[in-house]
Structure formats: structure tokens, C-alpha cells
């Protein structure tokens, strides 16, 4: 039996802990991040953000599915469909660049939005949490880059 028993996570925090972006955070870190997330409900077919729009937040899918698509010369090209635990719009946390694709609710869904300025605020107030998030974000971007390179090898 431990002297300091590990606190039990609430169902909501358990859900957050399973998201790769937050998987390395401690119980206290999860509570801090939970306080910064904005839960939003979207109905099937509703646009979350448009391609080219100014990016302010990262979104995490808590339930439902979200379709990511991009306008090409041949029409609207579907890039990915994301489910619970996955996140999108991650570049918003890093820079002010416009959205590179459109996100639309494929079915009724609940998303958690993480505002860029709150993430920057974390760097000043909770450096340990922010560095863990940054590392997870860098890993995620690295994976995406690797996948993109494998999908389109050097000519």
C-alpha cells in the first residue's frame, strides 16, 4: 500500500488521458489542461473551420467523427476522417498560418477546443505541462511528415 495513494481520475479526465497529446501528463497536469479546454457540440454537416481561415485553436474529437478535406483542382479531396481521441488543427498552436484544410462534422460530435493563447500562457505558468505537450505535438507532426514522405517518395 502506497503512502500517497494515486488519485483516481474522473471519467472525463480518463478520456483526456487517453488522447495521445495529453497521454504523458500527470493527474495535476490533466486538471490544468481540462480547465483550459472549451467543449463544443457540432451537428453532422456543420463546418468547424474553413481552409484559409485564420487559425486560433486546436480541436480534439471527444465523440463522433470529423472529416478533413481540401480543395484541389479536381474538386474537394478527402484527406482524413478522425474519430474520438484524435486531434486536428494542431498547427494553430504553433503559428498564425491559415488553416490548410477544411474540417466538417461527419456526424454529430463533441469537440474540445484548445486556444493558442492558452497554450502560450501555459508556457509561462506551467512550463512542465507545456513542454510535454510540445513534445507530443512534435512527435505527432514528425509522424505525419514521415507518412507524407512514404506516401510520396522522392522522385
Amino acid at each position: 500500500m502506497s503512502l500517497f495513494p494515486r488519485k483516481k481520475l474522473t471519467p472525463h479526465l480518463q478520456q483526456l488521458a487517453q488522447i495521445p497529446l495529453f497521454s504523458t501528463l500527470s493527474h495535476a497536469g490533466l486538471i490544468v489542461v481540462e480547465g483550459l479546454l472549451h467543449e463544443r457540440e457540432y451537428v453532422a454537416g456543420e463546418v468547424v473551420f474553413d481552409e484559409g481561415e485564420e487559425a486560433q485553436a486546436l480541436y480534439i474529437v471527444l465523440s463522433g467523427r470529423v472529416l478533413i478535406s481540401k480543395q484541389t483542382s479536381s474538386g474537394l479531396q478527402r484527406i482524413a476522417e478522425l474519430g474520438p481521441g484524435q486531434f486536428f488543427g494542431d498547427m494553430a498552436l504553433l503559428d498564425n498560418s491559415p488553416r490548410s484544410a477544411q474540417a466538417r462534422a461527419a456526424e454529430n460530435c463533441v469537440l474540445a477546443a484548445f486556444f493558442r493563447e492558452d497554450f502560450i500562457g501555459l508556457l509561462e505558468t506551467h512550463a512542465a505541462i507545456a513542454s510535454k505537450l510540445s513534445l507530443q505535438l512534435a512527435r505527432h507532426l514528425g509522424n505525419r511528415l514521415r507518412e507524407a514522405l512514404q506516401a510520396r517518395p522522392f522522385e
Partner: peptide, 25 residues
């Protein structure tokens, strides 16, 4: 402060959500 901000933002329609986040900031 943060809880109040979240409470206020709940009333904002999804289409204007990001703009309002930026506005509050």
C-alpha cells in the same frame, strides 16, 4: 477568471467561436 471566460464562450455560436476566443483574449 478562466471559468468565467469559458462560461461566456458557451453562449457563442460555433461559427463565431474562434473569433470570440480571440476577442476575449
Amino acid at each position: 477568471g478562466q471559468k468565467f471566460k469559458r462560461f461566456l464562450l458557451q453562449a457563442v455560436p460555433n461559427a463565431f467561436f474562434e473569433r470570440t476566443l480571440h476577442l476575449v483574449h
